[in-house]
């Protein structure tokens, strides 16, 4: 190899991409050619600075992003099998059902519950909703060994009163927003497939 070829191949040499024979050729050349060794050292210095700058300047992910990612993945996770099984029920249900993030319901256990929110057994939760919600509602999901109603919260959704039911589905919390069908402005066109789309597009309320 002549000097031009050697200089063109310095990067490849420094990247450890040469086979032994080629490495040897480059090293031999460096031994007697001061000019090429000079170029080699410059390249080494530059690559060292570049790599040091890149590695040192890495930006870590924010706590908010990590939290968001975990919510997105968790929503995707237990809900899927349960929803696949429940999809036909949801499709024929009288009410519009939308999955929302369960953290909308999350409060510290030490905080007093708001009068609009209730956590307890399935029966007590149903009583709370019947007593406090101005319209009759039907439970959005049937309960079984894997699916259990554990709480509810009265909210406004798109200017209509609505109930967020909190379920335990296969050990995970899933919240379901329900609006009564006899109210004006309900989302009759919503398809249950939206249930799958929601977790992907989901962003925390704080964003």
């Amino acid at each position: 190899m002549n000097c031009t070829e050697i200089r063109d191949s310095i990067g490849t040499y420094l990247d450890n991409e040469f086979a032994d024979a080629e490495r040897h050729l480059v090293e031999e050349h460096m031994r007697y050619c001061g000019a090429c060794r000079h170029v080699f050292e410059g390249e080494q210095r530059f690559l060292g600075a570049l790599r040091r700058g890149l590695a040192g300047g890495l930006t870590p992910a924010s706590a908010e992003l990590k939290e968001r990612l975990e919510s997105v993945l968790q929503l995707d996770r237990p809900a899927r099998p349960a929803w696949l099984q429940l999809a036909p029920i949801v499709a024929t249900a009288a009410a519009v059902v939308v999955v929302v993030g369960f953290f909308a319901l999350r409060t510290s256990p030490d905080q007093p519950r708001s009068p609009l929110e209730f956590h307890g057994t399935s029966l007590a939760t149903q009583e709370f909703v019947n007593d406090n919600f101005p319209y009759p509602v039907r439970l959005p999901l049937d309960e079984d060994g894997d699916t259990r109603l554990v709480g509810a919260k009265l909210v406004k959704h798109a200017n209509s009163p609505a109930v967020v039911f909190l379920y335990q589905v296969q050990g995970r919390e899933v919240a379901v927003l329900q609006r009564p069908e006899d109210l004006p402005g309900t989302l009759h066109d919503d398809q249950p497939s939206a249930v799958h789309a929601v977790p992907v597009k989901f962003t925390l309320p704080s964003r």
Partner: peptide, 14 residues
């Protein structure tokens, strides 16, 4: 770079 006039070590700081 080849002349060594740019010394990354000498850059004020990381």
């Amino acid at each position: 770079w080849n002349e060594g006039t740019i010394d990354p070590e000498a850059m004020t700081d990381d």
